[in-house]
């Protein structure tokens, strides 16, 4: 029983971080219809920024927001200088999705090699800002630690803020309108190009948070070839697709589903099956619902 609860706790924490990464992917997809593989590279770069600030200031609470801003700036930069010109020259049909994917893959490669060049074998250190010793219940320590609680808190806070921004503010209305009907939005006076850049920026900030939390929740150090970041990139993307790629709630559901099931498999079946399990979950969901959990076939939600 204890073991199961612990497994669930581990799964929920990991899953909530995948959810953030998934949200980052979803935000970019919604604003420009681009599957953004550079998101993983941006999260990585932002985490390095976070590690550097942490080293200078010693404070996680200064490092995190600065890393988020850095992520937002990186992401907006990429949208403005690479994706916008690329999408302006709309190409041929089959290549429509393939080309931007390839472009973001290329960007991922460039970001990684630059980081590798700057940091080489050195790793950035992002130790947990709070105790990661589990709380003790009747003599046994459970998988919930102050650190895990903090992670869940940050993720929750970020999701609530995003929901408020999207549902309650003018910016949110512009973001939703621009993503679902760019032409009508233009005619209504929305500066769609600018709004898209904002969408990418928010995505970058969320991705940076995912990167930093993934590191503190894991090994505590970040390196360009980090395995944790491959996990984050792949599972974040898979979670976004499971959730329906357009929906923020879907991304959260996708992330948590993935996190929990993978934790169970890791615990009870075997570590090497985790990745294929992610594939099977994805296939299963898509066979039942070809447009993800929060499907968006006809009645797209904005």
């Amino acid at each position: 029983m204890f073991e199961l609860i612990n497994t669930l706790l581990i799964g929920i924490t990991a899953g909530s971080i995948y959810s953030l990464m998934a949200i980052s992917v979803v935000l970019v997809w919604r604003s420009t219809r681009v599957v953004n593989f550079a998101a993983g590279g941006l999260a990585l770069a932002s985490s390095f920024v976070g590690a550097a600030i942490l080293e200078k200031t010693g404070s996680f609470w200064i490092a995190l927001p600065i890393a988020m801003v850095a992520g937002a700036v990186f992401s907006a930069f990429i949208e403005y200088f690479f994706l916008r010109p690329l999408l302006k020259r709309s190409g041929d049909k089959g290549a429509e999705i393939f080309l931007p994917i390839i472009a973001t893959l290329g960007l991922l490669g460039i970001i990684k090699t630059i980081l590798n060049y700057i940091y080489g074998d050195r790793v950035g250190s992002l130790p947990p800002p709070m105790s990661d010793k589990g709380f003790v219940f009747s003599g046994e320590s459970i998988a919930l630690s102050p650190m895990r609680l903090l992670i869940l808190g940050i993720v929750l806070l970020l999701m609530i803020s995003l929901t408020l921004v999207f549902q309650r503010t003018n910016l949110g209305l512009s973001l939703r309108a621009a993503s679902f009907a760019p032409e009508i939005s233009r005619l209504a006076g929305i500066r769609v190009d600018f709004i898209r850049t904002v969408g990418w920026a928010i995505s970058g900030g969320v991705g940076a948070t995912a990167g930093i939390l993934q590191t503190t929740n894991g090994s505590g150090s970040v390196s360009p070839e980090s395995f944790e970041f491959s996990l984050l990139l792949v599972f974040g993307f898979v979670a976004a697709v499971i959730g329906g790629i357009e929906s923020l709630i879907g991304a959260v559901l996708g992330g948590l589903t993935l996190g929990i099931i993978l934790a169970i498999i890791l615990m009870y079946v075997g570590g090497s099956l985790v990745f294929i399990a992610a594939f099977l979950i994805l296939i299963l969901v898509l066979l039942l619902r070809p447009h993800g959990i929060i499907g968006a076939k006809g009645g797209r939600r904005a």
Partner: peptide, 20 residues
């Protein structure tokens, strides 16, 4: 994106079965 995601997950997942 759904097809991209599925094939990506396959690429990551399938080879690791060998370890099991």
């Amino acid at each position: 994106p759904y097809l991209a995601g599925t094939t990506l997950a396959l690429a990551v997942g399938l080879p690791s079965i060998a370890n099991q």
